[in-house]
Amino acid sequence: MSEYDVIIVGNGPAGLSAALYTSRANLRTLVIGKDQGALAKADRIENYFGLAEPISGCELVENTKIQAKNLGADLVTDEIFHISWNQDFTLEGREGSYRAKAVLLATGTSRKKADIEGLSRLEGHGVSYCAICDAFFYRGRKVAVLGNEEYAVHELAQLLPVAGSAALLTDGKELKAKVPEGVQVITKKIRSVDGEEAVTGVTFADGERLPADGLFVALGSAGAVDLARKVGALTDGRSIQVDEAMATNVPGLFAAGDCTGGLLQISTAVGEGAKAAMSMIKYVRRDG
């Protein structure tokens, strides 16, 4: 397992800005990103400091990646599915596991949301957002995972050893990951999650029903709020709660950029990244 002082999840403006500071302060820094993020689709950035001519979002990010590498940061492409805390942090991704003294969540916002009848009403009563946290309650029972990418398969893997049976429901989306053998995959649209006091199953748009005791939501990739929930950071359901120093309630865990809400702009993301970096430097040094 690779060990670092600081791991930054997210390689957008917030994450890379933080990496510039932590690597200049000689902290062993790793930046993990799964893709280009929000700026991949921004053709012309006109309102960021220092641009005599507009440049594209991609170019801005790629330039800063080179800058961070030149200052000593390591950059990898990976998608993080889980973070746990026990004095220091363990991160689990598609490609491997990582360990760090301090972690920055800078994963941007995700605009995905499942608007399925019954889903929010039954949260905590069969609807769960964390397989590793709640698998215990489904020993020998029927569960389903809602999702269509690697993250959903990761959640499935946590449930398979425990649950009696598990199905993957993509809610009409194309399946983009390899599913372990023996798992039933249903790609139909979902009409509702059923149950009065607890989940009893799922009804699809065509009226067919799948009985289930638990439904684990793992849509798209793990976003900031998903990761925060797993490690125990407070959120308001959409953004991560931080103080002025960009610290969350979990010791050593910080957050910056779009994932903390507020003005969703490059300049604020860069500023928050810098602030978070200062706090991480202090935290790692104090911690030895």
């Binding site: 746990s84 805390w85 964390c130 946290c133 215990f136 929930r229 797993k230 490690v231 125990g232 950071a233 309630n249 979990v250």
Partner: peptide, 11 residues
Amino acid sequence: WAVWCGPCQMQ
């Protein structure tokens, strides 16, 4: 709560 539950350690 439970010992193996990360968020519970924060609660």
